[in-house]
Amino acid sequence: MIADFSTIVARGLGIRRGGRWILRPTTFGITSGVVGLAGPPSSGRPALLETLATLRRPAVGGLELLGHDVTGPAGQRAVRVRLGLLPDRFGWAAGLTAGEFVAYAAYFKGMPRRAVDAILERFELTDAAELEMDMLPADLRLRAGLAATCVHRPDLVFLDEPLNGIAEPEREELIGLLRGLAPTVVVTAPDPAELTGWCDRVFSMARARLIESLDVSRSWSRVPAGV
């Protein structure tokens, strides 16, 4: 279904890699909220996220994000400042502190220094800002990645397997954080079961098709996203 207020509108969107379909031409719309996307990495899930984040050109079809047609450069330029993407195993460098990492991202997103301090405080990273990324435990490292991704307060965020490697006690707390990152958050996991219960909608990628799962428990989704 495509609503007038959809954040993501894909019309006949198809993605190919190496001569085969990663996503066969598909039409779908995503409104605000937390949307889960399940499928193993080999299913082409990262490529779909990159395409939705305008870093990859679709093979066919049209794509609108936040009301802009992003198949052209003008639309991409307009919308990129409002997007955030955090890949699985996101890159940083040895010797870089969490604070430097977020400041680095802030520079490219055109944000002032005070925005770095604000996001570090919001994500409870002020004490860890001087620690090197390599030294951080997995949950704090994820927080630093999220802070770098969201330092410019994006309207639409894509997260590729953010909870991979996070222990159960920290998971619940981080899910609350993830839901509040932006009005629309697209989050992935290899198994749909990991997404049910806290995502408003869950899609699965199978055989190059996107299928919406109707079995979504609403325990977390009663809390609106973006708060």
């Binding site: 984040a53 870093l55 997007l83 955090l86 890159g91 680095y104 055109g110 991704t149």
Partner: peptide, 20 residues
């Protein structure tokens, strides 16, 4: 090759994509 991994930060930028 290494910088390609940072496209998620530098590509989705308010600045010109040529800056990186």
């Amino acid at each position: 090759l290494r910088e390609h991994r940072l496209d998620y930060l530098r590509g989705l930028s308010a600045r010109s994509p040529s800056l990186g």
